[in-house]
Design a binder for these strands. Structure first.
Ligand code: FES
Ligand code: FES
Lengths: 147, 147
DNA sequence: ATAATTAAGGACAAAAATATCCTTTATTTT
DNA sequence: AAAATAAAGGATATTTTTGTCCTTAATTAT
């Protein structure tokens, strides 16, 4: 569905959302290890998410690293996709026409558009925070401990 | 959504379904021109569809070319995807986990699985014939003429 | 100020996807 | 049988995506 780069972007952002705060930033080493991605490649992706749309925040130097502001936590997943995927699944035609549109629909369009709309809604309505919370539910972070 | 190769496979198959018969086969030149794809690359794809699963039929030599048997016309689109996409969107996890599954779900899984199921159903239930017919409806082939 | 730390950024490398070209094989027509 | 036609298949080239490495810049601690 997405490129490797986008997958890493999503996984990294979710991880950062779960584990970081303005007081506790995370290094690229830890992040890449945690989400099982190539370190330097992931670094570039985080740069992109930091520069292009301010989804991720970063600080250099000792004690520095990456974190998500609480404002960024509330942003929809689609903001990540928007930075990462030039056009992406959302705008593309199943059969590869230049553009998926009503004006020039391919023979799959009528049946596909509803599904596409659901995908768009999903990414629009799901926030980073929600994913982070869900991830915690599935694979509890060990922050809280086990009483 | 799909690779270029898969897009060409779908477009080519639909075109062949619309325009060919066992009595009137189509050459690679015509097909590639019609669907706006690189000729030799498309040739390889048709080879694959001919060899791997018998979706497309071919005959060499003068009067030869590609065509779809009426039996092949009734096959689901998913048969094309199965030949073209090693694993494909249908099996992959949104966040890039090795496998999209209930056993090891990512935080997008619960919301995504319903949409994925719809996609699978769409490709399973839509036949090549239906797409060809729909294509004719949208962009009438000039076979029938204009009254 | 100097040293240490950590992200930013540029240059480069490897792998995969896409695309082209040329030779071979099967089939038909002459 | 020979020539012509059209797909099959192998080798190679190009482009894009993915991944690595090294230097630079910012920030903090000594
Ligand atoms: S035009 Fe092809 S999916 Fe919309
Ligand atoms: S496990 Fe990620 S989408 Fe199913």
């Amino acid at each position: 569905m997405f490129s490797k780069a986008t997958e890493y972007a999503l996984r990294a952002t979710i991880y950062i959302a779960r584990k970081s705060s303005e007081e506790h930033k995370l290094g690229i080493e830890e992040i890449a290890k945690a989400i099982n991605s190539p370190k330097s490649f992931t670094a570039k992706i985080l740069q992109k998410l930091t520069a292009n749309n301010g989804i991720i925040s970063s600080v250099r130097g000792p004690g520095g690293g990456f974190y998500l502001s609480s404002k960024a936590q509330k942003r929809p997943v689609r903001d990540i996709l928007h930075v990462m995927e030039e056009d992406g699944v959302l705008g593309k035609c199943v059969l590869g026409l230049k553009k998926c549109s009503e004006a020039m629909p391919c023979p799959m369009h009528a049946e596909y558009k509803g599904i596409k709309q659901q995908l768009i809604q999903l990414f629009e309505h799901t926030t980073i925070q929600q994913l982070a919370h869900d991830a915690d539910r599935i694979i509890p972070s060990n922050k809280q401990g086990r009483h």
